[in-house]
């Protein structure tokens, strides 16, 4: 916690016990392009809509699906720039795991790490 005037969490409980900022974030997600995934018996598929406003945009220049470890990757719905931060963090975490254990980070651990970062931003200033 810093000493600045903003060193309180902006995600504050409402009187009814709701975290409104999180609900608004979820609204941002449900306004975002659709993504979906299916776990099959022998693998997983994720797909996403990446429609853009103009036909002049080069859609090959950006990608929404990113790999994190050689055997895991992710996609998002919502605010694109926020996603980049999470991708960077996730890769860094899994790289730290590799440095420590010389092995690929299990998917659930990766998920917990990213979820931890997301939780942090709802509470830590």
């Amino acid at each position: 916690m810093g000493d600045s005037a903003y060193s309180f969490s902006l995600t504050t409980f409402s009187r009814t016990g709701k975290l409104l900022q999180i609900e608004y974030a979820l609204n941002a997600v449900s306004n975002g392009r659709t993504s979906l995934g299916i776990r099959a018996r022998n693998g997983v598929v994720i797909v996403t809509d990446k429609k853009v406003q103009s036909t002049l945009i080069d859609t090959t220049a950006t990608s929404k699906i990113e790999s994190i470890t050689p055997e895991a990757g992710m996609v998002f719905s919502g605010v694109g720039p926020d996603y980049r931060v999470l991708v960077k963090r996730a890769r860094k975490k899994s790289q730290a795991y590799y440095r420590m254990y010389r092995d690929k980070q299990p998917v659930l651990q990766l998920v917990k790490d990213v979820a931890g970062v997301m939780q942090e931003f709802t509470q830590v200033s």
């Binding site: 900022q21 941002a28 997983v44 895991a72 996609v75 719905s77 926020d82 996603y83 999470l86 931003f121």
Partner: peptide, 12 residues
């Protein structure tokens, strides 16, 4: 502020 994204993570 919270992240304005939900993620789908796929792995094997």
């Amino acid at each position: 502020r919270p992240f304005g994204v939900s993620l789908l993570v796929a792995g094997y």
